[in-house]
Design a protein around this nucleic acid. Structure first.
Lengths: 185, 185
DNA sequence: CATTAATGGAACACACATGTTCCGTTCGAG
DNA sequence: CTCGAACGGAACATGTGTGTTCCATTAATG
């Protein structure tokens, strides 16, 4: 018998998903709110995550996994750099609440998990440098700034959807057009 | 004798400034934290702002004032549209913590104060439309999206300073270059 | 069917932010 | 100098989130 029963992984997922959804909209939400959204008792949450910080850490790790998966799907090494950037942004945009959560929840601003450079970070930086070497991407822009810019523009795109009621597709289109022009040579 | 003593306006300013500084870094900071930063007793804060929400409302109004002043200084009606946008961004960037505060404190996300269109909003939209009519600014981009984009890129610039230790000047330079290219025709 | 894992809910102690009251002290205008 | 405005600090009541314990119930497994 595995230590991780099917039931346990399912409820764990339910808690994580609900927490992402609730906290993305209200960073000050209580665990009772998360429990309600997950259709789970509040004590059950404490069974899986002893303290609130443990839940947040688990969420962070989960987001990192999703970012890694989205990066892999983007096949950054293939084709023109600008098109690869566009593919990556489309994938990242689909992270939805997982993306806005990182910006909205203060506990993630200086989270330890971001400090260490991930494979996804490395892949993006490499892609930008490849584009700069090939003359596709503006050499005057710092790759780290471009990385920062991409995340913030994706956040802007989602923010545009939520506050101005723009459609997801239209918002992403405007975002990609702006971003591509911003970093092009 | 005016109802507003010189001493009162000074402490009021001290509280507001301290609150902006503290809350920009930690949106969950207590009023005791604000009081300590303002070198003021906690009860004094309640003398000026009965409830926490009153303090936040006052901060919002103060930020709106600063935005209006910065917009006026930018003289958006003069010169090429792209240069006017750059002037405006430089002024807005100087708002510093007043800017990041609005992004970081959840209470401001759906604040009533933003709903009504201000003169600054109108001036920026008008400027963008003027630029589009003159062929300086990309006609395929929605003016409201551009407005959104400007704020988010300024936030990105400050974020770049804080997390990556970039210099303020260098960060603003990269931001302006990216933004100008992004919205140019 | 029987046993065990998994859950829900009540109850509790604890910590902390908030808002208020009260009183002594300090500062500044007249 | 004097008087009143402004302030600081202690104390208190309140509300709320957190983490824990305990017990009854339900679901899954063999």
């Amino acid at each position: 018998m595995t230590a991780e029963t099917k039931a346990r992984v399912r409820t764990r997922r339910a808690i994580l998903d609900a927490a992402v959804s609730v906290l993305a909209k209200n960073p000050a939400a209580s665990l009772a709110d998360v429990a309600a959204a997950a259709a789970v008792g509040r004590t059950t949450i404490h069974r899986y995550f002893a303290e609130r910080s443990d839940l947040l850490t688990a969420i962070g790790a989960d987001v990192l996994d999703k970012i890694a998966a989205a990066t892999d799907r983007s096949r950054l090494a293939e084709g023109p750099a600008l098109e690869a950037v566009a593919r990556l942004c489309s994938e990242y945009f689909d992270l939805g609440e997982n993306l806005t959560l990182v910006f909205n929840v203060p506990e993630f601003w200086d989270w330890e998990g971001w400090e260490q450079e991930t494979a996804a970070d490395r892949a993006l930086i490499d892609l930008v440098q490849r584009g700069q070497a090939a003359g596709e991407i503006d050499r005057a822009l710092d790759p780290v700034w471009i990385q920062h810019l991409i995340w913030c523009m994706l956040y802007a795109a989602w923010s545009h959807v939520h506050t101005n009621g723009a459609s997801k597709h239209e918002s992403l289109t405007q975002c990609l057009r702006s971003l591509t022009k911003a970093i092009a040579a």
